[in-house]
Design a protein around this nucleic acid. Sequence first.
DNA 1: AAAATAATCAAATCGTGATTTAATTATACA
DNA 2: TGTATAATTAAATCACGATTTGATTATTTT
Lengths: 207, 207
Amino acid sequence: MARKPAEQSVNRLDILLAAANVFRRKGYHGAKMSDIAAEVDLTAGSLYHHFPDGKQQILIEVLNEGLDQITAEVQAVVDDNTLMPDEKLRKIIYTNILGLTHNTSVAAALVFETRTILENPEARKAYLKRRDSFEQLYTQVIQEGIDAGIFRQVDVPIFTKTILGAHNWVGVWYREGGRLTGEQIADEMSNTFLAALSPIGVPAAKN
Amino acid sequence: MARKPAEQSVNRLDILLAAANVFRRKGYHGAKMSDIAAEVDLTAGSLYHHFPDGKQQILIEVLNEGLDQITAEVQAVVDDNTLMPDEKLRKIIYTNILGLTHNTSVAAALVFETRTILENPEARKAYLKRRDSFEQLYTQVIQEGIDAGIFRQVDVPIFTKTILGAHNWVGVWYREGGRLTGEQIADEMSNTFLAALSPIGVPAAKN
DNA sequence: AAAATAATCAAATCGTGATTTAATTATACA
DNA sequence: TGTATAATTAAATCACGATTTGATTATTTT
């Protein structure tokens, strides 16, 4: 009585994933609807059944899905009140980087294609809001640590962007099967930023 | 006897700058030849007089020029043998960030449009070579510092990519007239990475 | 198993934008 | 000055790719 495969028609999520892959390879403008369609064994026209609003809508949903997911994961860590700020920061860096290395296509889209979505006035506002919330998670934890005296005084917005820049870049250069695993990279990078925040290792004097 | 303006026809460099600006705003694929032309008061067709090989060639030259320039600046610091590794690192971070904030259009192109150039097999190889040389400048200085015992043991390639990711991102979010100047940002970020390399501020124990 | 609905396709549309071409104007040079 | 060369233009060309349209085929629902 085995259930039948039931893997007939594709769903929106399949298409979003496929699109992310193509975007990663060719960029949004370089990606043809037919490329995306081919990835899920459809023709270009068929995509309009699932996404009546077309190509840009697909991009918007890829980015929203991707950002929402990583935000939720990081948010969960931030909400864990059993953790000290330094443990929290280590864990959110870890979580974030593993999120990126586990889905490099979406990660790359978040870096490279955000600009495209921002050209669309409606999508722009909503997206920027999401992104700010995400950034807030970091600034919040860093500020907590400073207030608690376990991090040195840093310019929190800049430090946040420093971390996020480093993270984003991982999504660009990371390749599965490379020298290091996502875990190892996450480890190394969280060490780096925690060391950077250590109140004892004061930076060398300026000249 | 004032000399006449002599500002008649545009030159290749004007066009490259103009192109970088348009690329920053719309991305390579979103940039029309007519957009670039308009920026220097020409028509699309005229650009082919200066760049017979067309749009892609313009991108290639923007990236090469940009990367060569920043490389040269950083190289000069690396070659200065009067500096200790930590001073060197501080100075190359400084140099690099000021380079980015002084020409955000080219900086953004280096981040966002590199992928485009890499699709071109010939350009790809040459470009990757340049980029590796650039990255080498960082790894070299970091390794020197470790060998000299003034930096803690880090995974040099990862640390390098961490720095470069943070840098690249500056070119994306930095806006002239923002809260901080390029100098202040460079200062903050070099503090961050030097603190991260400090051999005394050992990172917190892993759980 | 009809009827209704969902997925899909193949073949138009339709606009856009890079590149080419054939002149025209400006500049340098001898 | 007049001729060669450099810049520039306006008007084709030409291809490509997003979207639309009108069937066709699957899948549900009752």
